[in-house]
Nucleic acid binder design. Sequence first.
RNA 1: GCGCCAGUAGCUCAGCUGGAUAGAGCAACGGCCUUCUAAGCCGUAGGUCAUAGGUUCGAGUCCUAUCUGGCGCGCCA
Length: 549
Amino acid sequence: MAVESLQRELGRAVRAIGADPDTRVGLERARDPEHGDWASNVALTLARPLRRKPREIAEEIVARLDTDAAGVRSVEVAGPGFINFRLAPEALIGGLAEIVDADLAFGRSEDGQGEPVMVEFVSANPTGPLHIGHGRQAALGDAIAELLAWTGWKVSREFYYNDAGEQINRLARSVAARRAQLDSPSAPFPEDGYHGDYVSEIASRFPGGPAASEELRAFAVSELRAEQDRDLSEFRVRFDRYYLESSLYTDGRVQDTIRRLREAGRVYEQGGALWLRTTAFGDDKDRVMVRSNGEPTYFLADVAYHLAKWERGFRRAINVQGSDHHGTTARVRAGLQALGLPRGYPEYVLHQMVTVLRGGQEVKFSKRAGDYVTLRELFTEVGVDVARYFFLMRRAEAQLVFDLDLALDQSDKNPVYKIQYAHARMHAIFRRAGLPMSDVAAGTVALLRQPAEVELVKVLRRLPETLAEAAARHAPHLLCKYLEEAAAAVNAWYHTGNRDESLRVLGVEQDLSRARLLLARAAAIVLRNGLSVLGITAPERMEHAETLT
RNA sequence: GCGCCAGUAGCUCAGCUGGAUAGAGCAACGGCCUUCUAAGCCGUAGGUCAUAGGUUCGAGUCCUAUCUGGCGCGCCA
C-alpha cells in the first residue's frame, strides 16, 4: 500500500537528518483537502530535541525524500512546519479493485490473530421485560463483538443470568400474590413487589394450584427468560452461552474462590463476616464476601464468575454494562488482582441512560411493564434497523436521547434510511443495466477523474481503518459516523448525474460506464459491510410507506 | 461529603495518542423536478468549545479550582 511505503520513506529521511532513530513519525490523513492527502507533524515534534526551527527541519526532510518510491505526486512544507503529501491519482484509484476483490471480506483485518475474547452484555435479571436500557446494551455489545470479530478476534457472546438472588424471591412473591388474587381479589400484594401487568399475565397462565410455590417460582423465571429470549432474538442478538449465577454455587466455584482468596492472604474476619481486603488493590473500602449469617454476597459470585472467564481461556473479557454499575468495577477487579489476574481485567464499557422523546416530550411509561418503556415497544414502532442504529450512533459514555419523531421519519433525514437508500441506489443502477453486480469485477479505473468520483473512492477506502479504530476503542459510533459520511459521498456522486448526463453511470461510453459500475459496486460493498457489522440490513430495494398503501 | 461520566452551533451530537481557519445531521434561509427513484440535490447563515487560572512553540483535547446535569457510594443485586 502506498501509505506504508510513504511512512517508511519518511522514517528513513527523518533518520537521515540525524534525528533519534526511535522518533515517532506521525503520518495522518489531512483533514482539509487543501493540505493534500496525508500530512506529517514530525518536524514540529523534532523542533525541541533538535533545537531548530520546525520549518527548517521540514525543508531538510523533504530534500532527502525519494517521493517516486512512495507514489507521491507532490510534497510541500506548510503552516508552522507540516509536511503535506499529495498522492498520485493512480495510487488512489487503485484501491477500487481491492474493495471489489475482497467483497464480503472488505474491511476485515487480523489484529486479533484469532485470540479469544468474551463480550458479556445485557445480563438482565429475569424479573421483567427488557427495557430500552437493555436495548442500548444489546445493540452496543453485539456491535462491539462484531467489530472484534472483523478485526481478527475469536469472539464469544455471553449473557450472565442473575438467577440466584433476592430479586427472584421478590418476583416469586409478586406472582404468587397475583395468583392468589385470582381466587380472592382482596388478597394482599407485597410492598416491594413488581407491579407491571406482566406479573398478572404470568399468574393467570400458571397451570398449577395456589399452593405450588416452588413450581410457581420456576414457572415465572422460565416465562420471563423465554420472553427476553424472544425479544433479543427479534432484535437480532444472539448469545453463544447463557451462564447461570446459580451454577457458581452448585459447581463449587464460589467456595473455591473463597479458599483461594484465603490462601492468597487477602481475607480477614470482622463482626462475624468474612472480608476481602480490596483496598490493597485500589478499592475505596474493603468488601464483605460472606455475611455474618453465612450467606455469600453477590460480589463474591461476581469475582468467581470472572475468575471462571479467565480460566476458560479468555485473556480478554469486555463487559458492557449500564453506568449505574460503575461502582462495582473497582471491587471486582480488586478481587481478581488478589488472585493474580492482571490489573485491567475485565475491560468495561459503561453506557449512560436512554431517554425517549416524542414531540419533544419524554416518554416514560409502558402499558405492560408499568414504569418503563420496553425494548419490544420501541423496535415494534420504529423497526429493528432504526432502533439498533439509534442506540449505536452516540458514544456509550454519553446520555442518549432517542428521538422517536426522527426515528419514524423515512426520508434521508433519518441517518439509517440515508445509508440504506444510498446502498439501494447502487443496486438500482445495476437493475437498470440488467447486470448482476458480481459481473462487474474489473474496469479501466483510470477513467474515474471527476471530483465526486475521486472523493468517493477516497471515502470508500477508509472502511478498514475505521473498523480497526472502532474496534480498538470499543466505539461503534465511529462506524455510524463513517457510514453517514460514505452515504453522503455516494449520494453526492450519484446526483451529479442529475445535472449533467455525461456524469451518469449508464448511457456513457462503454469503458467509462464499466469503470463507474465498478465504483457503484464498491460503494455498495462498503455500505453493506459496514451496516452488517452494526447488525443492520442493507436492502437492495427500498419500499416506502406511500407505495405500500 | 467522596467517586465515575458528561457540559462544543437554536436542537441532537462528532472531534483519533495536544497540531494548521472547530465539523456533521436536524431546524432556519436561498436555489434546483420531462431523474441511472426529487423519499432527493446544491448553496447560505449560525459557536467567547460551561467559567477562571495553569502547562506548551501550539489546548475543545493535558493539569487545578469552581458551576451545572446524570449515575453511584449496603453484611442489596
